[in-house]
């Protein structure tokens, strides 16, 4: 985990049930990068329900923040609309 430079990931935001049957079981907002799936959470935000993340579902985004083993803690979001490409 980086404590200086931010991590950056690009992918599609989808809703997905994770932790089925466990104490983490819920419909989560996740990022599908094509190579991995990361749970999304705004830094300091609610890990289970965040309306701000709900609005990103279905969008392709570039995220800056911190990646843990399972989760991406978001500091900044750039929505990559159709026709745009990441820098």
């Amino acid at each position: 985990m980086s404590d200086t430079a931010s991590d950056v990931v690009v992918g599609d935001v989808v809703r997905k049930r994770i932790g089925a049957g466990s104490k983490s079981d819920h419909d989560a907002v996740v990022l599908d990068t094509g190579r991995q799936t990361l749970l999304l959470r705004r830094r300091g935000g609610n890990a289970f329900a965040d309306p701000a993340l709900d609005e990103l579902v279905g969008r392709r985004v570039r995220l800056e923040g911190t990646a843990t083993d399972t989760t991406f803690l978001i500091d900044a979001v750039t929505v990559l609309d159709a026709g745009n490409s990441p820098p």
């Binding site: 104490k23 959470r41 609610n46 843990t68 399972t70 989760t71």
Partner: peptide, 20 residues
């Protein structure tokens, strides 16, 4: 309660409501 990776909060739940 619920907990999450690298999170200093635990959460309750009723339906789709997950308050801290």
């Amino acid at each position: 309660c619920h907990g999450a990776d690298s999170d200093s909060q635990f959460y309750g739940q009723e339906g789709s409501n997950y308050p801290v």
